[in-house]
Amino acid sequence: MNAPGASPNQLTAAQAHAAETGETLFADSKKLGMACFLCSESAFFITLLVAYALYLGKDTVGPTPAEALSMPLVIVNTVMLLSSSGTIMLAMKHYRDGRYGQFRVFLAITILLGAAFVIGTAFEWKDLIEAKHLTISRNLFGTTFYTLVGFHAAHVTIGLILMSILLGIQTAGHLSKESPAAELISWYWHFVDGVWVVVFTLVYLIGR
């Protein structure tokens, strides 16, 4: 902002604090904003998880989780999503070091892994609906399962869109080095992966 009187050597209280301690989260509004947003997101997912856990085994009609959920596909899915967390970490490492070629490669791999996860989920749902006759209106399990997994998958999809835009902008050379966009999107992606770990544990390990 080029308002009068803003002298360039004037640091806000937070920046001065950051310069002293090296702690940047509380000096960078964008990072902090993202962190706050993710906090509210976690409150949202915790609510869905609580509803799922609360209604486990309360169904009046089948199928139950044990009857409906098959593990092999989900395990492959999980491996893909978790490794995408690793690939985006590598991508960010290259980004910070200025190796943009490698950054783009690893970001693309991340997108592919995420997309594979979404497609995998689609196949899982197809099987559930057609073979196991589990729909959202079937029973409490269907209700809570599709809501929880569906909202997670929606978040994955949003992450894919964000990463694709990031890749496009970066490839076109419109992403300045100072922009925190890449880092914030990687936070979001890690968060989505973290949620999956909890969802997987509750739905496929404990609840099944």
Partner: peptide, 15 residues
Amino acid sequence: AVNMIATIITMRAPG
């Protein structure tokens, strides 16, 4: 809320 927290934490005047 996100906006307020970010503003209050990071944008206070010098000192």
